[in-house]
Computed example of a mutant assay.
Amino acid sequence: MKYRTLGRTGFEISELSLGTWQVGGKWGEAFNHQNADEILNAAIDNGINFIDTADVYGDGESEKAVGRLVKSRSERIFVASKCGRKLNPHTNASYTPPALRGFVEDSLKNMGLETIDLIQLHCPPTEVYYRPEIFGEFDKLIEEGKILKLGVSVEKVEEALKAIEYPNVDTVQIIFNIFRQRPAELFFQEALKKNIGIIARVPLASGLLSGHYSSATVFSKNDHRNFNRNGEAFDKGETFSGIDYKLGLEAVEAVRAIYPETPMAAVALKWILGFEAVSCVIPGASNIQQLNNNVKASDMAPLTGEETNVLNQVYTRLIKEQVHHLW
């Protein structure tokens, strides 16, 4: 495992880390703590030392599993959680300093920790990024020792650019993969200037880039890949990176033709790690085999310039016109 510095936080983290949206089971299934414990411990055994969770993952069960992991291991494990998505309705008006403080304190209780290394606003409405009092509340939480650093998880490049205008925002978590390339333009340039840590999320486009799906694949009733393809429940970009499923399968086959012998997930993750601005990538895993396959990306040789260009041509030819301007 290779390590990178998470921007100006100074945290030395595994470049291939772990997202825990589905760590306790597949999307739409009940949270399984035994499965979560096995995956989380296997992650640490493989050199991963940065775990990203959220209070809404498994309705708090993911945070509980992460807290249990931290207390059971001797290694330094950096914990990132997120807050805000529990607000109902999830609107700008619902975002208040007391509400967010309450969520942070609830997360501390869930995990049994005194301090969270990194707390992130969890994809708030765009208007929230224009409210200094929201960001100011986290300075107080830092002073009180409840959190060490503040970050944001965003839907849009424009939100990321606005967020890093606040001096206490040290990290940005953003969707970035072969099928979602816009962040590599202006945002990455500005992030590098300010030494912002970039956490690449949804790196496999909700599993599309694993190469394991086909037109015959059936997703369960409660899986967002079944019910949110057109943004019915939350931002469309969270599901398959906002790409039409049929078109996504066509693009996947184009990538597979370039790398017929290499696991597609590893190629997709290595493509992301080829960007200097990226601090880490956080694929999820619903079983240990998925985790082990993802970890292999860190040990792969870097993609050559020619290989990267060929992958980018797949995006330009099939995907760019549909999604580039949207997020």
Rank of each mutant, 00 (worst) to 15 (best):
A93T: 13
Q22S: 15
Q322M: 14
Q34C: 06
N46H: 15
G7C: 08
A233D: 14
K221I: 09
I319Q: 06
A301V: 11
L311K: 11
G10Y: 13
E307T: 11
A233T: 13
A257N: 15
N35M: 13
F103T: 01
S17A: 14
P89W: 13
S215C: 04
Q34Y: 11
K246C: 10
F11R: 03
S241I: 02
G207L: 05
A265F: 12
I178H: 00
V310Y: 00
E12Q: 14
T5R: 15
S74I: 12
S286G: 06
W327E: 12
E29H: 12
I282R: 03
Y95M: 05
E38G: 07
G151M: 07
G207Y: 02
V295W: 00
I134N: 02
A297G: 03
S81E: 12
A254G: 02
L108C: 06
Y259A: 14
P124V: 11
N35G: 04
G207H: 04
A200G: 02
K71A: 13
K109Y: 07
S14L: 04
M300R: 13
V218Y: 02
D45F: 03
S215G: 09
A254H: 12
V295T: 06
P203T: 05
N168S: 12
L192Y: 05
D59P: 07
N110F: 00
L69F: 06
I13A: 02
K320S: 12
L40N: 01
N92K: 14
E12G: 06
V66I: 07
N309Y: 03
I164H: 04
G284N: 09
N287E: 14
V323P: 02
T308V: 14
I13G: 06
L249I: 11
Q22F: 09
T239P: 02
N226T: 07
I147L: 09
I147D: 01
L113N: 05
P302I: 00
Y315K: 06
E250R: 12
L40S: 02
G7N: 08
I48S: 04
E250F: 05
I196L: 05
E158G: 01
F227H: 15
A301L: 14
K64R: 15
F50V: 01
V278F: 12
G248A: 03
I243P: 00
S94F: 09
A42V: 00
W327K: 04
I272A: 08
I258Y: 03
I196V: 12
K193T: 07
S210R: 11
G274D: 07
L40E: 01
A200F: 00
N195S: 08
L16Y: 06
P283F: 00
A163K: 00
I77W: 07
S279E: 01
T262P: 05
S214D: 12
E105R: 15
D235C: 11
G58V: 02
S81L: 07
